[in-house]
Write a protein that binds this DNA or RNA. Structure first.
Length: 263
DNA sequence: TCGATCCTGTAG
DNA sequence: CTACAGGATCGA
């Protein structure tokens, strides 16, 4: 489920519900290392940080639980930890009977714990965070000019821009009218500027919509995101020009785009 | 820059 | 049955 906006929604939920509580026990059904239980049990949850798509649950004693949801992971708070389903891979039982559940049917995600400085060190490669002051036009312009990667792959490269995935990369390119195959260094300045703006716009919209999806009445309603212009719309008519949305392969993933709008 | 890989679920 | 999946890494 997650790109940065969905991960952010997960973090906000945990900040609101889990921060300040103490972890009484960690039950591991199938995943993760025993070290998680040893390091996390008895600690209290001090904060929840996010770096790109990485979730960092800060515990007392300078311990961090590091979670990456990859494709199918989910992490959420429940008022009663006994509510967890058979799918749960890790259950954090909190002192008041509430809990934090980690699920991941495909088991591609990661959850482990380590001293905070170790965890943070491992995250050094991650690029600037959009929607924060570190994501500046100057920096974007500089890395773009130096890269010969196709635009789509550049946007998904977590060392260049943090948090964009397959969906929002495609949507940002569509909004900026940039062809996903175009080499970054060959994009003209005006287009590059609109791409910079489109990243902010798409992620801003997606954060809003993921937030709504998560705080809605339906418990943990999946992030149905806002209406997508091109993603998963192969063969359908482009909303702007009416021509057919195409799907190609880039870096082993599907890229959706409008060949007419994005030249 | 490609393909395989980690896994399981689901759509066609 | 095959193809594909909102991610990332590795080796050829």
């Amino acid at each position: 489920m997650p790109e940065m906006p969905e991960v952010e929604a997960v973090c906000r939920k945990l900040r609101a519900e889990a921060v300040g509580r103490r972890i009484r026990a960690v039950k591991i059904s199938r995943c993760a290392t025993p070290a998680v239980a040893e390091l996390a049990a008895g600690k209290s949850i001090k904060a929840v940080d996010r770096k790109g798509k990485h979730i960092l649950i800060r515990l007392s004693g300078s311990i961090t639980v590091h979670v990456h949801l990859r494709m199918t992971g989910n992490l959420f708070w429940v008022p009663d930890h006994r509510f967890h389903t058979a799918r749960a891979r890790v259950v954090f039982e909190l002192s008041d009977l509430s809990g934090v559940i980690y699920e991941d049917p495909r088991a591609l995600g990661k959850l482990h714990a380590a001293p905070s400085d170790e965890v943070d060190e491992g995250l050094g490669e991650i690029g600037p965070e959009p929607l924060t002051p570190e994501f500046t036009w100057a920096r974007f312009h500089e890395t773009a000019r130096a890269s010969r990667q196709p635009a789509k792959l550049f946007l998904m490269d977590q060392t260049k821009v943090a948090g964009l995935g397959n969906i929002y990369a495609a949507e940002a390119l569509f909004r900026a009218k940039v062809n996903p195959k175009r080499s970054m260094c060959r994009i003209g300045k005006p287009k590059l500027e609109s791409l910079f703006g489109a990243i902010l716009e798409v992620l801003g919209d997606a954060v809003q919509s993921a937030e709504r999806a998560y705080s809605g009445p339906g418990e943990f309603g999946e992030a149905e995101s806002f209406p997508l212009a091109v993603y998963d719309r192969e063969g359908e008519a482009c909303d702007v020009c009416g021509r057919t949305v195409r799907r190609i392969r880039q870096g082993g993933r599907s890229t959706y785009y409008c060949p007419s709008c994005q030249r």
